[in-house]
Write a protein that binds this DNA or RNA. Structure first.
Lengths: 176, 176
DNA sequence: TTGATTATATATCAGACTGATATATTGAAG
DNA sequence: CTTCAATATATCAGTCTGATATATAATCAA
């Protein structure tokens, strides 16, 4: 899940798992606790796959640390993950935001593609939310239940709309 | 994670794990695959806690199924979870939406409390996003990197704003 | 100077969720 | 009468979450 984030972060700067966790935690905010039990096994996996190297760095007067550095294969992997379509999974929003964060690493053409892909996802979601309301009216549920369900959907709808406006204004800027 | 959803769903109607999964899948949409490997252990847990009973139901000409029915203790648990403050975890948004869906089961006073709690969460997030931008300007990162990071934050900001408007208009309706 | 606290750094664990697959029964379509 | 879809449950590997444990070094107060 955090593969692309970690590789993107290492593109310009090597760092320890401790610092990687700290930066990631700052980005995701209070809602998710970024855990060492995730970072270190992830580093291990990326290392075994040949995407990063792990080197013991001993600074005088400091405890030693394992510094992760991206390899050439890792840079290719980063590009692959940037090109790859974002899979429909619970981390989709996070994955898009990581891609956006790394826009300065890729060509303008690819940027527009990613933005359009995100736009399509939002449009599909809008369609699916409208459909949900239609479906609910057909299935027999009680009136207050139905009202609440529609109301909850309307929250998602306004958020989708806000995101769409953001994408459209971003696409305009990128066209300039 | 899905405890409140399941109990809320059983408040008016008993059902099998198969149907529960189907309804939940429809609600969460394409982004998350609701798994049997989650539903059945969850039913087992709720059963062992005394919140639901599981009864074999054999309809003629159909294969038998285990139907979950909420108990009195389960109804108390449902109320407890509705009153309980929503914890800061990755499922926060989902938990609020489940609470909203079950508004017809609770008193108007509690509805307003939940909406205000959600509003506070959104306001705190807005503050934290503004702070992130300030912090970024202080730490030395490259210009394009900074620009992208700010741009990503602006997406979250417009979505927070849309949600806040939704909450405020909802609070007005509930005050009528 | 010593003692306590905080920051850096890594490891490990139980519990839970995801996505997938396996298996069995019944109904419907052709 | 056979294939396909729908209903129904079980199980599994891999991964993430939240928490705790451990160790070293720096800082700051008494």
């Amino acid at each position: 899940m955090y593969d692309l984030f970690v590789l993107g972060q290492l593109m310009d700067e090597s760092m320890s798992g401790y610092l990687m966790r700290q930066i990631l935690q700052q980005i995701v905010g209070r809602q998710r606790k970024i855990s060492f039990g995730m970072i270190y096994p992830l580093f291990k996996r990326l290392n075994e796959a040949g995407y990063i190297t792990l080197n013991d760095q001993v600074d005088v007067g400091k405890r030693s640390k394992k510094v992760a550095t991206i390899t050439d294969r890792g840079r290719i992997r980063f590009k692959e993950l940037m090109i790859q379509k974002v899979p429909l999974n619970p981390n989709l929003e996070f994955t898009y935001s990581v891609k956006f964060r790394n826009f300065h690493q890729i060509e303008p053409e690819l940027r527009r593609e990613i933005l359009n892909e995100y736009k399509n996802y939002l449009l599909e979601n809008q369609k699916s939310l409208s459909q949900q309301i239609v479906d609910m009216k057909e299935t027999p549920i009680s009136a207050p239940d139905l009202k609440n369900a529609q109301w909850v959907i309307s929250l998602k709808q306004v958020q989708m709309k806000a995101a769409l406006q953001w994408v459209d204004s971003s696409l305009k800027k990128f066209a300039e």
